[in-house]
Amino acid sequence: MRLGFLASHGGSAARHLTAACRAGELAAMPAVLISNNSRSPALAWARDAGLSTAHLSSAGYPAPDDLDRAILEALTAAGADTLVLSGYMRELGPRVLGHYAGRVVNIHPSLLPRHGGRGMYGDRVHEAVLASGDDESGATVHLVTQGIDEGPVLAQARVPVLPGDTLDTLKARVQAVEGDLMLRAVRGLATSVTAT
């Protein structure tokens, strides 16, 4: 498997999976990281880590179809066969989704389908969990489809919502399980693809 990453900010999933690849814990090769944010820590980290990188955003490609085409060209030029969204804050276009159908994974900081959908990302998700009175939260890795957070679930990790939890304490508990959850899901995806 050759992994392509899309990230807007820190890129924690990209970092975790790249470390797992290099430690021999994941039979894959990190190939490229693309960011829509020229100042993202993920882009700087990927350059330092020796990954191919690209900054592709609507600033340089104002027509959505042109940006979609540019992202697909950068991914295929790097030989990426599996795409990992690592905190990517933009919707994917139909070219990328079509080319990588069944091979695009994303992590969401709740137990989907609860607290998912348009506008539900980052701190907003944890705030919604706390406001709902849920007694558990967690993270979900799912396949990406055209609908926001609607693709098939590959793996989930659950964490308790504790009395007195704040946004920061709940967020920290969820983030603590995300890296290993993503690793498990990508391993499973690799196995299912190899078996077919």
Rank of each mutant, 00 (worst) to 15 (best):
L6R: 00
A7L: 08
G10N: 15
A13D: 15
R15P: 00
C21R: 11
C21I: 07
E25W: 06
A28G: 11
A28F: 13
V32R: 01
S35K: 00
N36M: 10
A44V: 03
W45N: 00
W45Y: 13
A46Q: 11
A46W: 09
D48N: 10
S52K: 13
H55Q: 07
H55T: 06
L56G: 10
L56F: 11
S58C: 02
P62N: 12
P62F: 11
A63S: 12
P64D: 01
D68C: 04
A70I: 06
A70H: 05
A70K: 08
A74P: 07
L75Q: 00
T82P: 04
Y88N: 03
M89P: 07
L92S: 02
L97A: 12
L97G: 09
G98N: 05
H99W: 14
A101D: 15
R103I: 09
L112A: 10
P113T: 01
R114H: 06
H115K: 08
H115Q: 05
G116L: 09
Y121K: 05
D123Y: 03
H126W: 00
A128G: 07
D134I: 07
E136D: 01
E136P: 00
E136W: 00
S137I: 06
S137C: 06
G138A: 00
A139E: 03
T140K: 11
V144C: 03
G147V: 05
I148M: 15
E150R: 13
V153C: 11
V153G: 09
L154W: 12
L154M: 15
A155V: 08
A157T: 10
V159M: 09
V159F: 11
P160A: 05
V161R: 02
L162E: 08
L162S: 10
L162D: 12
L167G: 12
D168Y: 07
L170T: 11
L170E: 10
K171N: 13
A172G: 05
R173L: 00
Q175A: 15
Q175S: 14
A176E: 10
G179C: 02
D180C: 05
L181H: 07
L181V: 13
L183R: 11
T191R: 15
T194V: 14
T194M: 13
A195D: 14
T196E: 13
